[in-house]
Simulated assay, not measured.
Amino acid sequence: MTSLAATDQGLLRQYLVLTKPRVTQLAVFCAVIGMFLATPGLPDLKRVVFATLGIWLLAAAAFAINCLIEQEVDARMLRTARRPTARGTILPQQVLMLSGLLGGAGMLVLYNLVNPLTMWLTFATFVGYAIIYTVILKPRTPQNIVIGGLSGAMPPALGWAAVANAVPAEAWALVLIIFIWTPPHFWALALYRSKDYEKAGLPMLPITHGPEYTRLQILLYSCALLACTLIPYALRMSGLLYLVAALVLGGVFLRYAWRLYRDYSDALSRSMFRYSILYLALLFGALLIDHWLGLLLT
């Protein structure tokens, strides 16, 4: 019995790894921010809970499919070689069953307990990431993360749709921020993991165009990102608190990009990658705090 329980726990742990929980958490966090920004007051908490659950389930399903499709590529990369699919410790049928159950449950929750618009948008995001990005773009073009980044940028729109049953310009402004953030975030990773990507046969920008060109692109996208983060203030979605946070956080991001361009090191590239994750969480957190502060002052 003890051995059987340990085996079950091991399988559950492998299933959890396939859903990429850290990435899922950041995506769901951005979706929740969209939910709270979609209404002048507090959104219906029951809707928030069900929307969060449904979006998490479909995101987890997409990541599981991604791991299955890329199992051979992952096995050749140090960063991903420990994934269950890469090690062959879990069967493809099990991954498909996991993804089907999670994705199906997510669609049912969103359709019946949130609204059909959110379900279809989230399903389109699933297809965009699991199929269009993973199967078509990633192995074929160094612009994979630019084009495919749209699916990863969708969570704020999904959250907005869940509460407002619509996706106005304000929601797309948040999508744009994540869309522009994605290339420098991933290219910083690709720079210090370039040997891994080359070994895996993936046409990442540092391999196809060289590290110096990649660093220039990171710098240019970082400038564009700083400009895009000012859009919520320009649209009067936010006030001075968010504006100051966007300028300070963006200034640090831009400084990383400039240093990376002028004096590259793997350690600096790794630091920028880690900061980029913290940056996005703090930026969207500042947007929410500013929103609530505005409500308290009115």
Rank of each mutant, 00 (worst) to 15 (best):
I90T: 00
Q93D: 02
W56P: 01
Q93T: 05
D74Y: 00
F50M: 15
P43K: 13
M119D: 08
F50V: 09
A105F: 14
G100F: 04
C67E: 07
L113Y: 13
L101G: 07
M119S: 10
N66M: 05
R76V: 00
A86L: 09
P43L: 11
T85G: 01
L98R: 03
M77N: 05
R79Q: 10
L102S: 01
V109A: 09
V73H: 00
G54N: 08
L102P: 08
N66T: 05
M119Y: 12
P43H: 12
L101V: 15
A60W: 04
P92C: 06
A105D: 07
V109C: 11
C67G: 02
W120E: 12
V49Y: 11
G100R: 04
E70I: 05
L96Y: 08
V48W: 11
V48I: 12
G100M: 07
F123C: 12
A75G: 09
E72W: 01
F50R: 10
L42V: 06
A61D: 11
L78H: 00
M97Y: 10
A81F: 03
A105M: 15
F63R: 03
G104D: 05
A105S: 15
G128K: 13
G106S: 13
G54H: 04
Q71F: 00
L101D: 04
L58D: 08
Q94G: 04
N66E: 02
L58M: 15
G88Y: 06
G103R: 00
L113P: 09
R79G: 10
Q93F: 05
G88D: 03
L78W: 02
W56G: 07
G103F: 03
F50E: 13
T52M: 08
A86V: 12
E70F: 02
S99R: 08
L91N: 04
E72D: 12
I65L: 14
T80Q: 07
L117T: 04
A60F: 01
R87F: 06
P92D: 00
L58T: 13
R83L: 03
G100A: 03
R82A: 04
T118R: 12
L110C: 13
S99D: 09
L68H: 04
A81L: 01
F123K: 11
V73S: 00
L108H: 04
L53V: 09
L121W: 11
A51M: 06
L68S: 05
V73C: 01
Y129C: 14
T89A: 06
V109D: 10
N112L: 14
E72F: 05
G54D: 07
A64C: 02
L42F: 13
A51P: 08
R79W: 07
E72S: 08
R82L: 06
T89K: 07
V95T: 01
Q71C: 02
L101A: 15
K46W: 13
P84N: 03
P116K: 13
L91K: 05
Q93G: 09
L98S: 04
V109L: 07
P116L: 13
F50I: 06
M77T: 00
A75R: 14
I90G: 02
F63Y: 04
P84R: 03
R87D: 01
R47W: 02
I55G: 09
L101M: 09
R82S: 07
M107P: 11
L113S: 12
V49T: 14
A105T: 15
F123Y: 14
T85K: 05
T125F: 11
E72M: 03
A64V: 00
V49D: 11
L98Y: 01
A124C: 14
L78F: 04
R87P: 00
